[in-house]
Structures are given as structure tokens and as C-alpha cells.
């Protein structure tokens, strides 16, 4: 290893941390919008997979497999540069990013919702019908409240995935944390310090969320629905 000419200048962090923080807020925002979209898509796909209509089952399964298999990075480019140009569909960078996150997350969410709904014993549904609840009522009042306990921990894990996925939206020009770090490092020529800061912020964020999941799993596990 040769002698390095690189001068470490940790003062840049002191100077630019508000910018980085602003970027972080955008990262969190886009991941949250993506998450809301994932949940909605996940519910639709999960119900589609559990449908009695074979065609709906096939379609939902294909959509799930499709978005689980295509890399988020490719999907992002496909939506932002490919799809929107081809069909003259003007999307902002933020919208394209949130959409890509939502589609990928939705596919994973579908599996989680499906498993959660199936984990509720069938006797619960039968009992709901027996006391005269409609199909809609028994889903909302009986099945979902029980399924949600099972769903929450894996759902938060998916959110961590989306948060990590949200770092790549800067490639289409969303001014998220990494984008800001890159931008500032061009100005200050201190990439190591800035990327280190971004990395540390990210790790502490994901670790605290996964610590929360661990806590939730123990807490919800105790009152797990069983046969």
C-alpha cells in the first residue's frame, strides 16, 4: 500500500450534517410511501391468491412471482426511463421510486399476508358464519385482527428491506441521503467521511428497527393464536 495523500477531514460532517439529515428524511419518506403502497398491493394479491376463482389465483401468483424476481434496480430504471417515456407517462423521480419500492414490497407482502390469513384457524371463520356474520364482517372483525399479530413482525422486516432498497433511488435522481453525500463529497472531496456517516446512520436505523421487531416477536408471540 502506498502512502496515502488523502487527508481526513471530519469537519465536513459537522458542516454538512443538516444536509445529510434532510436527505435521510427523503429516504424515510420514500420508503414509507412505498410501504403504504406495498401493504395495499399485498392485501389485494393475498386475497387474490386465496380466491376460489382459478384465474384470479393464477394472475395474482404471476404478479407476485414477477415482482419478486425482477431486481428493484432494474424495475426502477424500467419505470422511470422505459415505461414513462414509452407511454408518455410523466412521473417524478420520487413517484417512480416509490412505485418501484411498492411493487417489489407488495410482492413480498402478499406472501406474508397470505400466510397470516391462513394461520388463523378455519374454526374461527366457521364460528363467525355460524353466529350470522357476513363474509365481509367476519374478515374485518374476526380474521384480520387475529392475522395482524402474525403479520406485523415480518411486515416490519419487509419495511427494513424497503428502507435499504430506498438507498438506490438516488440513481434516478431522488435527492436522498446517498445523493446528498455524493453531491457534498464532490464539493468537499471527502467521500470517505461522508459515506461513512451515511453508512453509520443507516446501520443504526436498521438495527434499531430490527431490535424493535425482536421485541415485538416476543411480545406478540406470547399471545399467539393457536388452534
Amino acid at each position: 500500500m502506498r502512502n496515502s495523500n488523502y487527508k481526513f477531514d471530519w469537519n465536513v460532517i459537522e458542516k454538512y450534517w443538516p444536509e445529510i439529515l434532510k436527505g435521510l428524511i427523503i429516504t424515510i419518506q420514500i420508503s414509507l410511501v412505498g410501504m403504504v403502497f406495498s401493504i395495499l398491493l399485498g392485501i389485494c394479491l393475498a386475497n387474490g391468491k386465496l380466491s376460489t376463482n382459478l384465474l384470479i389465483v393464477r394472475i395474482s401468483t404471476s404478479i407476485t412471482e414477477l415482482f419478486k424476481s425482477i431486481p428493484l434496480f432494474v424495475l426502477l430504471f424500467w419505470i422511470y426511463y422505459g415505461f414513462s417515456l414509452k407511454f408518455n407517462f410523466a412521473l417524478t423521480e420520487f413517484q417512480a421510486g416509490a412505485l418501484a419500492l411498492g411493487l417489489t414490497g407488495g410482492a413480498y407482502m402478499a406472501e406474508v399476508f397470505r400466510a397470516g390469513l391462513l394461520a388463523v384457524p378455519i374454526g374461527q371463520l366457521e364460528a363467525a358464519y355460524a353466529i350470522g356474520l357476513s363474509k365481509m364482517q367476519s374478515s374485518i372483525l374476526i380474521i384480520y385482527p387475529q392475522a395482524i399479530r402474525i403479520i406485523i413482525p415480518p411486515m416490519v422486516n419487509i419495511y427494513i428491506g424497503l428502507l435499504k432498497g430506498a438507498t438506490i433511488v438516488s440513481v434516478i435522481g431522488v435527492s436522498d441521503m446517498i445523493y446528498v453525500a455524493r453531491y457534498v463529497s464532490l464539493e468537499t472531496f471527502a467521500p470517505f467521511e461522508l459515506y461513512s456517516l451515511a453508512g453509520i446512520i443507516f446501520i443504526s436505523l436498521t438495527l434499531s428497527i430490527s431490535g424493535f421487531v425482536y421485541f415485538l416477536e416476543r411480545k406478540l408471540g406470547r399471545s399467539k393464536v393457536d388452534g
Partner: peptide, 20 residues
């Protein structure tokens, strides 16, 4: 905990430049 993109950028643009 660390996203691949951050790690990659850190290793390739940060670390490699810092330690030459």
C-alpha cells in the same frame, strides 16, 4: 444492517480513495 448500495459506494469511492 448496511444496504448494498451504501456498502459499495463506501468501499469503492470512499475506502479505496482514503487508503489509496
Amino acid at each position: 444492517g448496511v444496504p448494498l448500495y451504501v456498502l459499495l459506494v463506501w468501499v469503492y469511492f470512499g475506502l479505496a480513495i482514503a487508503v489509496n
